[in-house]
């Protein structure tokens, strides 16, 4: 295992029935690096994200995170990692509808056993940072799409994770709102030295990354895995 890489996929393979979603995918990501995984819908990029983030597990192959094997750990361990060292941002934010924005953001800290007052104070700071401090007391249903994504971004980054997975993070936003969310995400990731795996079908979104891995039919054809 290369000590420099934060995340590594080795020959990761996954099938749904007779359909091969991932065909022996190799990938390596350095600390603080931002990579875009692109490709048409159905190319396997969302399945790859599930395997890399430990939400799903590959049929064969290995996923390594920060020098340790991830894919063969129990779900409880993988879930804890996703609350602490790995942030996940999905297309529709997946905020808890019953909770105000600030509590949504504080959730990873509260689930990790943090004191409520401190967690909510930190949540407020993150909301301010993303320009949505004024919506702290509102529930997700009362927010615009762009505001929801900023709240979800604050929740994904509140633990200062080493790695952020973003799956079509601007997919439900218009281009101006999407650009604002992307810029906020990239600036924060740079400040925290958080590596980002940005999954998108949109080339204008992928252009925010340091490099692009273009998927076709469950693989990166012709791609040389950088050392």
């Amino acid at each position: 295992m290369n000590g420099m890489s934060l995340l590594e996929a080795r020959r990761v393979t996954k099938a749904y029935g007779r359909t091969t979603a991932l065909d022996a995918v190799d990938l390596r990501l350095g600390a603080g690096e931002v990579v875009a995984i692109t490709g048409a819908s159905g190319c396997g990029k969302s399945t790859l994200l599930m395997c890399l983030s430990g939400i799903g597990v590959p049929d064969s192959g290995e996923v390594w995170f920060a020098g340790a094997r991830l894919d063969d750990r129990p779900e409880s361990v993988r879930a804890r990692l996703r609350r602490t060292e790995i942030g996940v941002l999905l297309q529709h934010g997946q905020l808890v509808p019953e909770l105000p924005a600030a509590e949504n953001v504080a959730l990873p800290l509260l689930l990790g056993g943090a004191r409520r007052a401190g967690a909510l104070r930190a949540a407020g700071e993150w909301l301010d940072r993303f320009g949505v401090g004024e919506v702290a007391a509102l529930r997700p249903g009362e927010l615009s799409g762009g505001q929801q994504q900023r709240v979800a971004l604050a929740r994904a980054l509140i633990t200062s994770p080493r790695l952020l997975f973003a799956d079509e993070p601007t997919g439900s936003l218009d281009s101006v709102a999407g650009e604002a969310v992307l810029r906020a995400m990239m600036t924060a990731a740079r400040d925290l030295s958080t590596a980002v795996v940005l999954v998108t079908h949109d080339a204008t979104v992928a252009a925010y990354a340091d490099r692009e891995l273009h998927m076709r039919d469950g693989a990166f054809p012709g791609q040389v895995v950088p050392a």
Partner: peptide
């Protein structure tokens, strides 16, 4: 197919430049 892959890389490299220019 190889030509299109190389053209994509060239286009993406230019898009990254332009995106940074915007910032």
């Amino acid at each position: 197919v190889d030509y299109l892959a190389r053209q994509r890389e060239a286009h993406m490299a230019r898009m990254r430049e332009l995106t940074r220019d915007k910032e």
